[in-house]
C-alpha cells in the first residue's frame, strides 16, 4: 500500500515537473546521483537519515497507543539546546563523560517536553496532536530566545549561536567510514524500540491500549502511565537527535538545528506504518531525497523547496492510502453475514 502511494505521488510530481518545463527523467536521475550515486552522496544521505530515525521513532512509539504526536521538532531543538548547555558546563571533563552528560541532558529535555503532552492527554483528555504541535512552536520560540539572549556567544554576529561545545565532546566519525555515529545510534534505537514494542509485555500492554482502551482498562492496565511513558520516550529519542546534531554536526546550538527533521520524521513514521524496523529504510530514502536537494538546485535550477513539494505529495498520498485501505476492507462483505 505505501508503495502504491509513493508511485501515485511520484506520478503527480512528474506532472508538476512537466508543468515547470523540466524533465522528470533527469530529475529522478539527479535524485539518485545526489542521494546514492557516490560515497560522498551516501555520506550526506546517512548523516541526514540519522536524526530522521530518531524523530520518526518519536512518532511511532506513541502511535502504538493510538496517539498521534507530531511535535518531535520541539523535543529535538530543546534537546539540542540542553545538550549544548550541559556540554558547556562540563568544560574540562574527558570527552566520553561530556558526551554522556550531553546525551542525558538532551534526552531528558525531550522527555519532559513531550511528557507534558502525555500528562495533559492522560489526565485531562486534551488532544495530543494539537498540544504537541503547539508545544513545538513554543519550544522553537524558547530556543531562539535563549540562543539570541542569555546563551549567545557574542562573537557570533550574523548567525546567533551559543558558545561551541568543547572539542573533546565532538562525536568522532565512525572509523573507516567518515560518517558520524548518529546513524548507528539511530539504528540501534530502532531495533531496541522494535523489541520493546513487539517482544516485551510493556509493548503488548501499549498495543492493547492502542487497539482498544476499554479492554485495557478492564484488564486493569495503567493506561495513563503508558501514555505518559510513550510520549516521554518519544520525546527522549527526539531530544537525543538534537544532541547528536549538536555534538556531531554543528558543534553548537543555532538556527541550523531547526531544520524540519521533526516534521520529516512524521512522514517517515507513516511511510513505515509505525513499524520501528521499517523506519530504517524509509529514513534512508527520505534522507537521500533531502541530500539531493543541493544538486537539484545547481543542475536543474529548481528551488530547494522542490524536494519539499515531493515530500508533501508523498505524505498526502500516504494519508489518503490509509483511508482507502480501511475503505476497501469495509467494502468486502463478511461471509458470516
Amino acid at each position: 500500500m505505501p508503495l502504491l502511494a509513493i508511485l501515485a505521488a511520484t506520478a503527480v510530481f512528474c506532472a508538476f515537473l512537466l508543468a515547470l518545463g523540466r524533465s522528470p527523467a533527469s530529475f529522478f536521475q539527479l535524485v539518485w546521483t545526489g542521494a546514492f550515486g557516490s560515497w560522498f552522496s551516501w555520506r550526506n544521505t546517512l548523516s541526514r537519515a540519522a536524526p530522521l530515525l530518531l524523530t520518526a521513532l518519536c512518532v511511532a512509539v506513541p502511535a502504538q497507543l493510538g496517539l498521534v504526536v507530531i511535535g518531535g521538532e520541539g523535543a529535538l531543538v530543546l534537546g539540542g539546546l540542553s545538550a549544548t548547555w550541559a556540554g558547556l558546563q562540563m568544560g574540562g571533563a574527558p570527552g566520553p563523560v561530556i558526551q554522556l552528560a550531553m546525551a542525558a541532558a538532551g534526552a531528558a529535555a525531550g522527555a519532559v517536553w513531550l511528557g507534558i503532552v502525555g500528562v495533559l492527554r492522560a489526565r485531562r483528555g486534551i488532544n495530543e496532536t494539537v498540544t504537541s504541535l503547539v508545544m513545538a512552536y513554543i519550544a522553537i520560540a524558547l530556543f531562539n530566545q535563549l540562543v539570541e539572549g542569555p546563551l549567545r556567544d557574542p562573537a557570533s554576529l550574523n548567525k546567533p549561536s551559543t558558545y561551541a561545545i568543547p572539542k573533546a565532546a565532538v562525536l568522532p566519525t565512525l572509523p573507516g567510514l567518515d560518517v558520524h555515529p548518529g546513524i548507528l545510534i539511530g539504528g540501534v534505537a530502532c531495533v531496541l524500540c522494535w523489541l520493546l514494542i513487539a517482544r516485551t509485555t510493556t509493548g503488548f500492554a501499549a498495543r492493547m491500549t492502542g487497539g482498544n482502551v476499554r479492554a485495557a482498562q478492564l484488564q486493569g492496565l495503567p493506561v495513563a502511565w503508558l501514555m505518559v511513558g510513550a510520549c516521554a520516550l518519544g520525546g527522549a529519542l527526539a531530544g537525543l537527535a538534537g544532541m547528536i546534531e549538536v555534538a556531531a554536526v554543528h558543534g553548537r546550538a543555532n538556527a541550523s538545528l531547526v531544520a524540519g527533521y521533526g516534521y520529516s520524521g512524521i512522514l517517515i513514521a507513516f511511510l513505515a506504518r509505525q513499524n520501528a524496523l521499517a523506519i530504517m529504510p524509509m529514513a534512508v530514502l527520505l534522507g537521500g531525497i533531502g541530500a539531493a536537494g543541493g544538486l537539484l538546485q545547481r543542475r536543474m535550477g529548481l528551488p530547494d523547496a522542490a524536494v519539499l513539494v515531493l515530500q508533501g505529495m508523498i505524505f498526502v498520498a500516504i494519508l489518503a492510502s490509509e483511508t482507502l485501505y480501511g475503505r476497501i476492507r469495509w467494502f468486502q462483505p463478511r461471509a458470516t453475514a
Partner: peptide, 25 residues
C-alpha cells in the same frame, strides 16, 4: 463486559493475543 468485541477484546489483534489479554505478563 457486554458486546465483548467492542469492550473486552482488541479487534485488530490476533486470536492468540486476545486470549492472552489477561495473562500476557
Amino acid at each position: 463486559p457486554e458486546e465483548p468485541l467492542r469492550n473486552g477484546c482488541v479487534p485488530g489483534m490476533s486470536v492468540v493475543d486476545n486470549l492472552n489479554l489477561r495473562l500476557f505478563d
